[in-house]
Design a protein around this nucleic acid. Structure first.
Length: 627
DNA sequence: CTACCGACGGTTTTT
DNA sequence: CCGTCGGTAG
């Protein structure tokens, strides 16, 4: 296949790029791309991948590795590259999460770890709860060999032990001799976790640290890794933790070309262990040039202007973004709504949305209810009023069985099972056909060359679909039938085959948890649904207004955003001008494409702590009204 | 058994 | 800031 000359390369699927994006796209050195909300970070990375592959700057057989924090971000990026590139090139783009990257290194080369750090196999991935850690700190305090260390250990903040303690202590070839109480406690944690008869218990922070040690002590593995990947992309770089940063330095501190993308103004994960200086250090440690993307393809000019007031409060030097999205609504694009009673608040929001929908024909998913925390409380508060207006809410973080709604909807199992049910209810569902065909090929492990085998599998599939179609046609949707039907669909897909063919389902209880939750959720969706197709719509959240926390909304966008509860009780941890609080507010504000409304309800509490946020809105010219 | 007090967690991802 | 949980006094 011919390579495209660098100067002749054009972007795929979009018109053009802004000037700085072109410069960043063509860079052959490490770069730090600072991209505010709506700048098209993911699109930029997808275009850069296409550029590097199609021009041969990433030469065959070398690969591009893209590292994201969340699974959905990793999948999303891989999908975009697939849509932009020939299959043989897209195959050389590897997109995974940080944790999956660290774990894959550990799993492949565990035997190369220095003996004192080698886990007992099979090790188990565990998630240390705050309770586990505070319990550990308590007993470590008791057991500390020196009096002066005891106070030091007792003073370790529970929330920082894993990220700042375990995450930032480098491991060494041999056993380490602790020089202070903190180190003693961290090493004790390591020994207790590694020396579990029957299998070590490792958290992802530990897996990151072990992967880093592995590369540092095995130059030949490090060389092989660097030979594999010519370029590495790092998404949401502002959220990099201590352990991840250390792994990056060891793994790619050589001649790999790194592209880090992110926005310090959207750094809202430091409380969960993100290091506050990742971007700044990256520029120093990796000699990366800083390139700022200035366009905002999401929000209208009026919203971008309001966002800029908040952006400057976070970073006084912040450059103003240029809105590329025309305004499409009349009236104020931002308002503060003041209520006395929660019932009035719920009623006015729902009535407003119902009326707006009637006028504009926007879909339910063009609106969004954002909260700082405790989405279930807000769901209970709004549900009745919304139902009275014929609106449905979808609490994305609702707990279903042992998982949550949004995790369940991201499961491969869910995608496959719902596609089968779509085929059994809808007249035409081309996307569902593709999904089902691919799923069956994967799960039945049919050789495409073997025509007889293919036909047999197709017959089996059609027979199942015919029976299912007849069954659904004969029954009115209800919870009990829906639960049973889902179990049958899962049985048809075959849990054993899923465990064999989907890496995610190979170990642990993930498949079982997803199966359970899917049956529960489909049952709940079918209860009171007009027909089976409506039950499936409900299951997928079509025509439901999303309700989610700011943290979950990162990276998403909505035409009209309601931020519910700009008050001290939702913002209990906020203090004036603290960067993380301002960043959280900035993320909420910048989800909106056209309109954003903040609500305050006196019955919920005061607004002293959040006074600085109101001041910023006032400075930006946002009016307060009592609708 | 109940009533009250103080401590603590909340916003999250990851195979 | 506010709800929950565990402990203890009555």
């Amino acid at each position: 296949m011919p390579r495209i000359p660098i100067d002749a390369w054009r972007p795929k699927g979009i018109e053009d790029l802004e000037e700085n994006a072109w410069r960043a796209l063509r860079a052959q050195e490490n770069i730090a791309v600072v991209a505010g909300p709506g700048a098209g970070k993911t699109e930029f990375l997808a275009q850069r991948a296409a550029f590097l592959l199609e021009t041969g700057l990433c030469p065959d057989p070398r690969l591009i590795l893209a590292i994201s924090f969340k699974r959905d971000a990793a999948t999303n990026l891989a999908d975009r590259v697939e849509r932009r590139c020939r299959p043989d090139l897209a195959r050389r783009f590897v997109s995974m999460t940080f944790d999956a990257f660290a774990k894959s290194l550990l799993d492949r080369f565990v035997a190369a770890l220095p003996v004192p750090w080698r886990p007992i196999l099979p090790y188990k991935v565990v998630f240390a709860s705050a309770r586990d850690i505070s319990g550990f700190i308590q007993q470590a305090t008791q057991a500390a060999p020196r009096g002066e260390w005891q106070g030091e250990i007792a003073a370790i903040p529970t929330g920082q032990f894993e990220s700042h303690g375990l995450g930032s202590l480098p491991l060494h070839d041999g056993l380490l001799e602790p020089t202070n109480g903190r180190q003693w406690a961290i090493l004790r944690w390591w020994r207790e976790s590694l020396e579990v008869p029957g299998g070590s218990r490792l958290t992802f922070v530990m897996i990151n640290r072990l992967a880093e040690l592995l590369l540092r002590t095995n130059p030949q593995i490090l060389r092989a890794l660097r030979a594999t990947y010519s370029h590495v992309f790092l998404d949401e770089f502002q959220d990099t933790t201590h352990a991840q940063y250390a792994l990056l330095r060891t793994a790619f501190g050589g001649d790999t070309v790194l592209t880090a993308v992110g926005d310090d103004k959207q750094r809202i994960m430091t409380w969960a262990g993100a290091r506050p200086d990742a971007f700044a250090r990256f520029q120093g440690d990796f000699g990366a040039e800083r390139i700022a993307l200035l366009c905002n393809y999401r929000s209208s000019p009026d919203l971008v202007r309001i966002q800029h007031v908040v952006a400057r409060a976070i970073e006084p030097e912040a450059a103003a973004a240029v809105s590329m999205a025309p305004r499409s609504v009349d009236g104020d694009v931002a308002q503060i709504w003041h209520f006395n009673r929660e019932a009035t608040e719920a009623e006015r929001i729902s009535a407003w949305i119902a009326q707006d929908r009637a006028l504009t024909r926007l879909g339910a998913r063009d609106y969004c209810i954002l909260v700082r925390q405790r989405a279930d409380k807000v769901e209970a508060l709004l549900e009745r009023a919304f139902a009275a207006q014929g609106l449905a809410l979808r609490n994305e973080s609702a707990v279903i069985g042992r998982t949550t709604l949004q995790d369940l909807l991201a499961e491969d199992l869910t995608e496959m099972a719902l596609a089968i049910l779509r085929l059994a209810t809808a007249e035409r569902a081309p996307a569902a056909w593709t999904t089902v065909a691919e799923a069956i090929t994967l799960l039945r492990a049919v050789d495409r060359q073997n025509e007889a085998a293919c036909r047999r599998v197709e017959c089996e599939r059609d027979a199942f679909l015919t029976t299912l179609r007849a069954r659904l046609a004969a029954e009115v949707p209800n919870g009990e039938t829906a639960g049973q039907v889902m179990q049958e669909v899962i049985a048809f897909l075959d849990p054993a085959a899923l465990a064999r063919s989907v890496p995610r389902y190979t170990t642990g209880e993930t498949l079982e948890i997803a199966g359970e939750a899917l049956s529960l959720h489909f049952a709940a969706s079918a209860e009171g649904a007009a027909d089976w197709s409506a039950a499936l719509d409900r299951c997928e959240g079509i025509e439901q207004i999303p309700l989610l926390t700011i943290h979950k909304s990162k990276g998403l966008e909505y035409h009209t955003v309601f931020f519910l509860g700009l008050d001290d009780s939702q913002w209990w941890s906020h203090t004036a001008a603290n960067p993380e609080g301002l960043a959280t507010f900035f993320v909420a504000l910048s989800r909106a494409k056209q309109r954003v409304f903040f609500t305050y309800c006196a019955a919920r509490g005061t607004r002293r702590k959040v006074d600085d946020l109101y001041t910023l809105l006032r400075q930006a010219g946002v009016q307060e009204t009592a609708p």
